[in-house]
Amino acid sequence: MAKLVLDALTAKFPQAVSHTETINGDEIAWIKRDDLHTVAHWLKTDPKMLFDAPVFVTAIDRLDWKPQHRPLAEHWTEDKPRFEVCFQLRSVKYRYRLRLKVSVPEHDPRCPSLSSLYPAFDWQERETFDMYGIRFEGHPDLRRIYLYEEFVGYPLRKDYPKEKRQPLVRRDDLPINPIKATGEDR
């Protein structure tokens, strides 16, 4: 059904939409990073679309992604950006579902913020920033939302060590951790 949405989107923004796909009934449109805001604005305001319900924002870390895992998405082979940022939208009136994906390279983890269009995305973008370190440009208040200010790094990135702890307090009478003594902070 929402193939209709993907077709309309591609017809309207042939430049901005780099690729569309349908996986398990989910319509996905890959949007070029700089055009995301324009596309989302059109999706929200166009009377045939009316994507008025924001569902979630998250990111996917494709650290060990190999092209053979998913033979789709040709543009991936160009520069293999590490992160995908997903914006799931829903149109309550027409019952469309659509996921906008933006690929974000590791050395430059920027993504346009949609929180001016959808205020509900404000905290979700903060969470994505907190966990993956994606910098949402235009976000009014991009701070950590769950973790404490002292936390270093982004824990849901796949290269964050699983066992690494960043304690705020510890008892001072604990036996010395042998790992700590070697200088490695756990």
Binding site: Y146, L147, P155, Y160, K162, E163, K164, R165, Q166, P167, V169, R170, R171, L174
Partner: peptide, 15 residues
């Protein structure tokens, strides 16, 4: 929970 957020036992902080 063996990950970044969970404290490995509250005896890390109090006896």
């Amino acid at each position: 929970y063996q990950n970044y957020h969970a404290m490995p036992g509250c005896d890390q902080v109090i006896p």
